[in-house]
Computed example of a mutant assay.
Amino acid sequence: MSSFSQSFPPKPTFTQKDVPNLSGKVFLVTGGYSGVGLEVSRVLFHKGGRVIIAGRSEKSYSAAVEEIKGNCGDGLTVDVSTPGSLEFLFIDLSDLTSIKPSVETLLKDLNRLDVVWYNAGVMVPPAGSKTKQGYELQWGTNVVGHFLLHKLLCPLLTATAAGSEAGSVRAIFVSSLMHAYGPKPYGIDFDSTTIDSEKAKSIPIWTLYSQSKAADAILAAEYAKRAIDLAPTAEDGTKKNHVISISLNPGNLKTNLQRHSNTNKIKEFLINMILHPQSLGGLTELYAGLAPETADCNGGFVIPFGRKGSVASYLQKGMEKEDIGKKLWDILEEDVKSYV
């Protein structure tokens, strides 16, 4: 029933009209020049935010800027007195060496970061595809690259949260409905996640994708705990002003993420029956990142098109009984230590 509800969700209750004026706030969206990320960037810009779009194609970014400025989207009221701004940050998530230099340059000009969406992703690329460091491409891009980026941005997020309204600073890890179909028992086959793993060759490509999306959900839950520990303690002993960490399923959407999928015409027709406009996925991501009611969703999971949900039960069991979140976090810490 959960899968059915997420595949055929009700109409969104949090729309572009519910996004407040974002003047003075700073946002970062990986992959923010296409697909769902483009929809998120569009709303943030037209609501007055400073939007940093991270990706590896400045050409795609330039095309997105033209699209965003020329089309404010449905139902959006633009406050022309407080225009937003757009800027490009070169980051190739499939090459860990590209991430730190770009972030260091960015941080020289940045004194706050209100919300980051780890939105970019790769889905079912050609078999055998790898990152520059030799990880299976989906794992290396969707998980390892984003983990390194988050590690480098974490101090600024923590500092911003300390001086901001409680619950307003957030890290959003974009997962998928497919997170529920990762390897059993707990979503990740760690033998398939190492550099030049031979094990990955024997695992179906869709299972490898599901594994990467399970990891995104696990990392969000694990960071939720760690973010509280990192936050300064108030005089009353509480830690209200910490970063909120949320994962989500944006929905089954018509985006270019399916560009690698090989399906026949019948399968393509059937798949298109359950695909929704990418703008609705943007609303799911905006709900997770900006809606007041998700301020109490630390470590939680958001489902289409802007509802509180929960991760798959087997994943939850792994986090609670086997501390799978700590195991994953510790492994990734070791993986990226040479690139920090």
Rank of each mutant, 00 (worst) to 15 (best):
A215M: 10
W206C: 01
I246D: 12
W206T: 05
A220I: 10
L230M: 14
T238Q: 11
S210I: 03
E222S: 15
D236A: 07
A227P: 15
G237D: 05
I228E: 15
N249G: 03
I246Q: 10
R259Y: 00
A215F: 05
K240A: 14
T207K: 14
Q211G: 12
S247E: 01
R259D: 01
I218N: 08
Q211N: 08
A215R: 08
D229V: 13
V243Q: 06
K239L: 01
P250S: 06
N241H: 12
S210A: 13
N256I: 05
N252L: 13
K239E: 00
V243D: 01
Q258G: 01
A224W: 14
A221T: 07
W206M: 13
S247Q: 04
T233Q: 15
S210V: 03
E222L: 13
R259G: 00
V243T: 03
A231E: 05
S210C: 11
N249Y: 06
G237R: 12
S212Y: 02
H260S: 00
L248I: 04
N256L: 06
K225V: 11
I228N: 13
A220W: 10
E222Q: 15
T233A: 11
L208Y: 07
A214R: 06
G251W: 02
T255G: 02
W206H: 08
Y223T: 04
T255S: 01
L248E: 00
T233H: 09
Y223W: 03
T207F: 04
A220Y: 10
N252D: 09
E235A: 15
A231N: 07
H242G: 00
D229W: 06
A217P: 07
G237A: 03
Q211S: 07
N252A: 09
K213W: 12
D229H: 08
Q211H: 07
S212G: 02
G251F: 03
S210N: 04
L219R: 01
H260W: 07
K254L: 13
D236G: 00
P250D: 06
A221E: 04
K213T: 10
D216Y: 10
S245H: 09
L230A: 07
I244A: 08
P232Y: 13
L219Q: 02
N249F: 04
A220F: 12
A224N: 14
S245I: 05
A227G: 14
K240D: 13
L230N: 05
L248A: 03
K213P: 11
K240P: 03
S245K: 04
D236P: 05
S261E: 00
V243H: 00
E222F: 10
A224G: 15
K240C: 05
A224L: 14
E222H: 15
I244T: 12
D236T: 01
P250N: 07
E235F: 08
A214D: 09
A214S: 13
L230Q: 09
D229N: 08
D236M: 06
T233D: 11
L208A: 12
